[in-house]
């Protein structure tokens, strides 16, 4: 069964982005996991074309 946040009494949040939002939830007693997110590597056009042709 899927979790539905206004049906369960235990909200558990995965936060991606602003750390302040995670802290605000933690202060309210919510279990929060932060994703150590990194921007995807941006390939230039030539490299993309090369990879496309190889794959």
């Amino acid at each position: 069964m899927k979790n539905k946040c206004c049906k369960t009494k235990t909200l558990k949040v995965v936060n991606i982005g602003l750390q302040t939002f995670a802290e605000s939830l933690q202060k309210q007693g919510v279990k929060v996991a932060q994703i150590n997110w990194r921007p995807p590597i941006k390939l230039d056009k030539d490299m993309e074309d090369l990879l496309d042709s190889l794959l």
Partner: peptide, 22 residues
């Protein structure tokens, strides 16, 4: 604090029910 390196590591069987994205 609990943390993950990506969403791929998150298992909703552990009760994670909301993803907040900013």
């Amino acid at each position: 604090d609990e943390s993950f390196n990506s969403l791929d590591e998150v298992d909703i069987a552990d009760g994670w029910n909301l993803c907040q994205i900013s």
